[in-house]
Amino acid sequence: MAKVKVVEQITKANDQIALQNRQLLDATHTLAVNLMASPGAGKTSLVMRTIEALRGRLRVGAIEGDTASQVDADKVATTGVPVVQINTGGGCHLDANMVRPALHELPLAEIDLLLIENVGNLICPAGLALGERINVVISSIPEGDDKPYKYPGIFTVVDAVVINKTDLLPYLQFDLLTFRRLIEGLNSRARFFQISCKTGEGIAEWAQWLADKFEAAVGDGVNHT
């Protein structure tokens, strides 16, 4: 019997396809953002708000991931932006191989910012790259302030943490300061946004951050208005 050293990441096959997706997106100067959250945190609402806030500044497109149904894509389509729905058929996350055909269905050359709404889940999406350059987790006030303790993995790998439904703060027990301090401790590079998709609080600041990321990553200062 002989021991063979391997040391190979179990996500390697996914990572290779994700890299191809990213190269495709880079070629069309499209910045992709992977939006992750538990079900009901407000992913689709944030996609809608972001499209609205960036209208006339960036050309936005969307991929909507869900286990089943076309509901989210139909909702986003009312804004007039190109959108593709991916149904995972019960699968708990999007992976790079599911995103690849969706990219080919979208007019990428006419999209600056591609918002990819992952399946509602705080566990599985965190470990699987899709081709995005920016990872975001959305948490919401009703979910409670203990989410980073229960799902630390996702909070450590993201570029931004968005806390949604701040309009509910007066009615619920949520220690925003401790929540924020824990995330800063776990992930010092993550930007923190407090928003309410209902009232619009914080949306402008969030949208500006995305616009700045686009300019820095692929915009080359080009104005697409």
Binding site: K3, K5, V7, E8, Q9, I10, L182, I183, G185, L186
Partner: peptide
């Protein structure tokens, strides 16, 4: 509170025993 994660995110095949 918290800190930089230095272990716990590993996920790989380390080795195999074959004949």
């Amino acid at each position: 509170l918290g800190g930089e994660v230095i272990a716990g995110q590993e996920f790989y095949v380390e080795s195999i025993e074959v004949e």
